[in-house]
């Protein structure tokens, strides 16, 4: 049973900010859900509840109890937009930011939002309380066709650029999420798409590469069940991390990595590769990628040949 007064999840990990590693608390708040709720791969709406202002504040209380003594970073995710007043009413947002500002050991606060909710006045207000605010936007790709047709994201690259300008001018940090292998792209095109996207992003503090994982109840899941979609190989994640322009902090934390529904390889090498990916995300050191596996040859063939099926995974 989903409780409206408890967050969907809280966990601790580590992240890299401006060259140093900090412990991070990630908290997923249950809101009324993303207002757009139309992306082909997203199943987060399943988590939504009709939470009242009171519920939301209670959720945050639970989160607050998890704050560590030492310096830390906090990610508050709603699986939607933190700045959408329908998800997080203004009062609640202010209260959360106020409480956060009282923690001197909070070095960074990261929230997510669609570009249409990124407004100068909101940012100004938020930054006055939390100067180290970082806003994350799921751009997914710089290619409008792919974002429109394959993801159905509902905003354009220009919309993103506008929001990112507002963020830059306000003095906040910008985190950009890129989606690796949205449906209807071959493995090779998916890699190209992310590399192109990184090139196209002119300013960001962190770029996070998110390989698609198959969420329940989504269009992508239907494709997956019919064997018409295979999540990306972990080799592809590695490929992107190695080959991309290092214009920002480049990170990846593959959701469901190593499982059939997440980015995966043959099953034998997955854990080692995931470890290397995490290590790279913290160190930005390409030399961490050492692991070899016989499945790499297959992945190379997939890269070379998957386009030639004209729409179906070559290897499921």
């Amino acid at each position: 049973m989903k409780k409206a007064n408890e967050p969907a999840g809280i966990w601790r990990s580590a992240d890299r900010f401006d060259g140093e590693t900090l412990p991070t608390i990630t908290a997923i708040m249950r809101t009324r859900g993303c207002r757009w709720n139309s992306c082909r791969m997203c199943g987060y709406f399943e988590e939504h509840v009709e939470s009242t202002e009171e519920d939301l504040l209670k959720q945050f209380k639970v989160i607050e109890r998890n704050f560590p003594k030492e310096e830390f970073a906090l990610k508050i995710f709603t699986s939607g937009s933190f700045f959408d007043p329908r998800e997080i009413p203004e009062n609640v947002r202010r209260e959360i930011l106020r409480i956060c500002s009282s923690y001197k050991n909070l070095r960074r606060l990261i929230v997510e939002s669609r570009p249409e909710f990124v407004k100068e006045e909101i940012l100004e207000e938020a930054l006055s309380l939390i100067p180290s605010l970082e806003v994350a936007i799921g751009l997914e790709t710089s290619d409008d066709f792919i974002r429109n047709f394959c993801i159905n994201k509902g905003f354009s690259f220009d919309d993103f650029l506008e929001a990112s300008k507002i963020i830059k001018n306000s003095g906040a940090y910008l985190r950009v999420y890129l989606l690796l292998k949205p449906p209807f792209l071959s493995e090779n095109t998916a890699i190209k798409d992310v590399l192109r996207s990184i090139k196209a992003i002119s300013w960001a503090s962190t770029i996070s590469i998110n390989p698609v994982s198959v969420h329940r109840g989504t269009e992508v899941e239907k494709l997956f069940r019919r064997r018409e979609y295979r999540p990306p190989w972990l080799w592809s994640v590695v490929e992107v991390l190695r080959r991309c322009e290092k214009k920002a902090n480049i990170i990846s934390d593959p959701t469901g990595g190593g499982t059939k529904r997440g980015a995966h390889n043959c099953g034998k090498c997955d854990n080692d590769i995931l470890r290397e990916i995490r290590k790279f995300s913290l160190t930005q050191d390409e030399s961490v990628f050492q692991k070899e596996c016989e499945c790499k040859e297959k992945w190379k063939e997939v890269l070379e040949l998957e386009d030639l099926t004209f729409g179906t995974p070559l290897l499921f």
Partner: peptide, 24 residues
Amino acid sequence: HKKIKKFLEDHGIEIPEIMTPFSV
């Protein structure tokens, strides 16, 4: 498989980036 791309080229066929699977 090593000759498919050449074959497509000879027929002036470009591989699109976005390709929907059978049921879409």
